[in-house]
Amino acid sequence: MTVKIVIGHRLGKGQAVADGVRAAGGEPVLIPGPGADMKVGDVMAAEGAVLGISFCGSGGAGAVTAKAKYGHDIEFGMRSAQAGVTAVEQGRTVLGFGFLDSEELGFKVTEALLKKLAKEAS
């Protein structure tokens, strides 16, 4: 099963997070270009992705936009991979972080998501 995770970064970054997602067994969809965080909800809908991760200075704009447009269950203002893991375990589908382009974040969040999906399927 392919589990797509959309990544959008305000400054057009996010490659390290995408590498982490891939390393954990997910399929990253990295939105190119500046302002990508605001497109996370749209790209999730277009790609049929189960999770979106947005990055901006305050960690909220992309997630709140996805909530307003698509009704996603969100968490925002996060600053650590562990906060993202907790949010996934709580069933959040769009995660808003401050600028934190790390492979660890992508890996741990994907690992938590795959574990959750496997548990739900069993």
Binding site: M38, C56, G57, S58, G60, A61, V64, T65, A68, K69
Partner: peptide, 23 residues
């Protein structure tokens, strides 16, 4: 859309000012 994005940024900003936090 942009107004809501500004508002959530503003929320984080006023909280940072309150806690004297710097990015």
């Amino acid at each position: 859309t942009r107004a809501l994005a500004l508002a959530v940024h503003a929320l984080a900003f006023v909280r940072r000012v309150r806690t004297a936090e710097h990015l």
